[in-house]
Structure formats: C-alpha cells, structure tokens
Simulated assay, not measured.
Amino acid sequence: MLEKLTISRKLLKELDFPIIVTTILICIFGSLNIYSASHMSSGYYYLKAQLIWIVIGIALIYFILLIDYSVIKDYAVIIYGFGVFLLILNCIPAFQYTVNGASSWIKIGGISMQPSEFAKVGIIVMLAKQLEDMEGNINSVKNIAKLTMYALIPMALIVKQPDMGMTMVCFFAVLGIYFISGLNFKVILGGILGVTILGTIAWNSSLIADYQKMRIVSLFNPEKYEASYSLQVTQSKIGIGSGGILGKGFLKGTQISGGYVPESHTDFIFSVVGEEWGLIGCLVLILFYVIIMYRSIKIARESKDIFGTMVCVGIISTMLFSVFQNIGMTVGLLPITGITLPFMSYGGSSMLSAFIELSLILNIGMRRKKINF
C-alpha cells in the first residue's frame, strides 16, 4: 500500500524542482501581499484561507504525480464531461452564486466554487487527447470541426454566465494548441476574424453586460470615468506609481491599507506588489513567471508524445495570457476582466486549478522518457 503512495527515486530525478521552488516562492510572496491587502479589514482571515489552499494544492500535486499521465489521458472524456457538468449546474438558479455581477459560481452545501476554472483544464486535456488520437493531423476539415466543437461547448456555457475573462483564457489555450499543432495559418486568421465578427455581434446584443462594455469604453477615456468605471484602475495606477523603484515597504502601502483599490487581495494583487515592493518587486515576480514558463516550454518540447506536448502548450498559453492580462489591467493597458494572477491572487478555485495544471506539466516532465527498472 505504501509503495503505491511513493514516487520512485528514478522518477523523482526527472522531476523539475526549479518549477516547484519558484511556484512556492510565488505562493509565499502572494500570501504576504494578500495579508497586507486585507489585514486592516479582515485580520488573518484571508491569509489563513490562502495558506490552507496552498497546502491542499501541494498535496494535490503529489497525488497527481503518483498517476502516470497516460492514465489521465485515458480519462480525458470523464474530466472534460465533469467540467461541462459543473458549467451546466451553474445554469440552474438553485446552484448559481453571483459575484460582482457575474453568475460564474456555484454553491453546494455552503461551499462555493468557480466551475470554469476546472472546465478550462477539461478543455485542454480533451483537445490534447483528440489530437493524440488524430496523430497530430489537425489540417483536416473533420478533425478541426471535431476539436472546435469540444472547445465551443464549455466556452458557450462560460459566455452565458457571463465571464468574458475566463472565455478569453480558454480561447487563448485553444489558440495556442491549434498554433503549435501546425494548423494552417490562413485557418487561424479566419478563426480570429470569425471571433471578431461574433464579438461585434455580441457587443450589439445582450450577451455582453453594460458594465462589461463600460470597462472597455473607459479604458480609452479613463479621465471621463475617473469617478466610476475607471476608479479602480486609477487608484491602482496611483498605488503602483507611488511605489517607485524600491516600494514603500511591507504593510506600508497607503493606497492599499486605505482601501482605495477594490479587490486588491484578488484581481488587483499586482497593485499591492507595485506599491509596497516597487519596480524591483514587480520585476522579480515577472522573472518567477518567466522561469516557470521557460521550464514548462522545455518540458513540452521534450515530451514523449503529442498528448503531453499539447497539455503543456494549453497550460502555458493560459498562464501567459493570465499574467499578461492581469498585470495589463492593473496598470490601465487592458480592460478589467476579473482574471486572477496565478498563485498570487486569493481564491480557492483559481489556486486549485493552477496547481492541477502545474502538476500535469510536472507529471509530463517526470515521465518524458521511458524509465527502465
């Protein structure tokens, strides 16, 4: 029994420890900033909760590493189906839980969760499995239609919530997989054009809520909406700018401690980093993400099969977009979407899904070559 719960030494030698160490450093740094952002109003509540999620996430990594990822591949349909099932539950009013205008949460027995975070993993695993079965032949009308169908079903349910931020995360995961699979570039351009047309139609319909439209409109004219839709971004920019090169110091951020930046412990955690740790702290954090993505790309290139490569590509795409979008919105370069900063922002669903994604990359890297016993 104990042998089944132990990872062999030969496999451990293949484990990418730089990714693990860097991720833990980000989690610790994130926890410090979450405490700084929330201690004035909530004491240790969010810090304790985040540390619990981190511990659960690390345990989750260990148990997922025990399973050969080829076994996970065999259960791709179930993983994907479970994600879709959670999204369907979200369509039932009895389970819906609304946060900041979006009904993107479900609540069962007092426990709330964001289904789209787990559906995102399901999309990546399912597309990777299908591409493996297709032997990588994506440039076929039948194959691309099948792949796109699997991607569109959960994404349509996410749009309905509405959660445009997570929709974009899923879109870039699919785009990354399609691109690396060698999909004809003309098809990719055609797809982007199609999404643009659909986006224009959605903009002129009720699919996109008024407050979501105003987030985009206010981005191009922040002064006009400084007291309303641009308030959060304006305060965030003041905080980050006032941090200077070295920052004001831990627990010394006036914008953060004064409560001027809403959601500073979740979506706007980068504002805390900018004000209290300055430009140096921001660059160090970005460097940590670069290390994780560089090592992940290395694992994707060395994977022994198509499934492993595509899972890594999908996860790298989601992380790259999430980091870019989250930081971009806090400095006023991109519209507010509610996308969290991986391993930094407070949140159980986002933290657990990030750890699941990381464990899949580590699993693929650990088994990238045949181990002879």
Rank of each mutant, 00 (worst) to 15 (best):
L246V: 14
I238V: 12
I245R: 12
I245A: 15
Q235W: 03
E226M: 03
I245L: 15
Y229G: 00
G244W: 12
I245V: 15
S218C: 02
S230L: 05
P222N: 10
I245D: 10
Q232W: 03
A227L: 13
F250E: 02
T234R: 06
L219M: 14
T234S: 11
S230V: 07
S230T: 09
S228F: 01
G241L: 06
Y225Q: 04
I238H: 04
K237F: 04
S218E: 01
A227G: 09
G241R: 06
T234D: 05
L231V: 01
Q235H: 08
V233Y: 06
V233S: 06
G243L: 08
P222F: 01
Y225P: 00
K248T: 07
V233R: 04
K237E: 14
G241K: 07
S218Q: 05
T234N: 09
G247K: 00
G249V: 07
S218M: 00
G247P: 00
I238G: 01
G241M: 10
Q232H: 15
I245Y: 13
G249Q: 11
Y225L: 03
S236C: 14
F220W: 15
L246A: 14
L246N: 14
S218P: 01
T234I: 07
Q235P: 01
V233M: 13
T234K: 12
L231N: 05
L246G: 12
T234G: 06
L231F: 14
A227V: 05
V233W: 03
K237Y: 07
F220D: 14
G239Q: 08
K237C: 13
G241I: 08
